[in-house]
């Protein structure tokens, strides 16, 4: 499993950024023996586009090989694209570290 979480900053002590397409970073994590390990923080280059940010962000995370996304609000187009790439989307808010624990505890609500 590979997870992308929309983030306000580069580390897991930051908050989940509440808009999928306009987050400054995506933190990418990988599942290693039941633990989530940070792989990288990817800058969301498309965050300042006038339109189509959701689609660009969806493309970005799929290119990173992600199969699960955790975010706040996500637009209908980004949601549509992620679903077509068989990505699962979950709602998360607050500090990323805590949200990841909640995800492992299967406490996050699925979107879409």
């Amino acid at each position: 499993m590979k997870i992308a979480i929309s983030s306000a900053d580069k580390n897991i002590n930051s908050d989940v950024f509440d808009i999928f397409g306009r987050c400054p970073y995506f933190i990418i994590l990988e599942d290693k023996d039941g633990k989530l390990e940070k792989v990288e923080a990817v800058k969301n280059e498309g965050m300042d586009q006038n339109s189509g940010v959701g689609i660009s962000a969806a493309q970005l995370v799929v290119e990173k090989g992600v199969d699960t996304v955790i975010t706040g609000n996500i637009g209908p187009r980004a949601l549509d694209v992620l679903k077509q790439f068989n990505v699962e989307i979950y709602f998360g808010e607050g500090v990323i570290k805590d949200v990841l624990q909640a995800f492992l505890d299967k406490k996050l609500k699925r979107i879409g």
């Binding site: 799929v62 549509d80 694209v81 790439f85």
Partner: peptide, 13 residues
């Protein structure tokens, strides 16, 4: 939307 090695995704609207 095209990602290498995947079938394209289509945004209808």
């Amino acid at each position: 939307v095209f990602v290498k090695n995947k079938y394209p995704a289509f945004v209808k609207d």
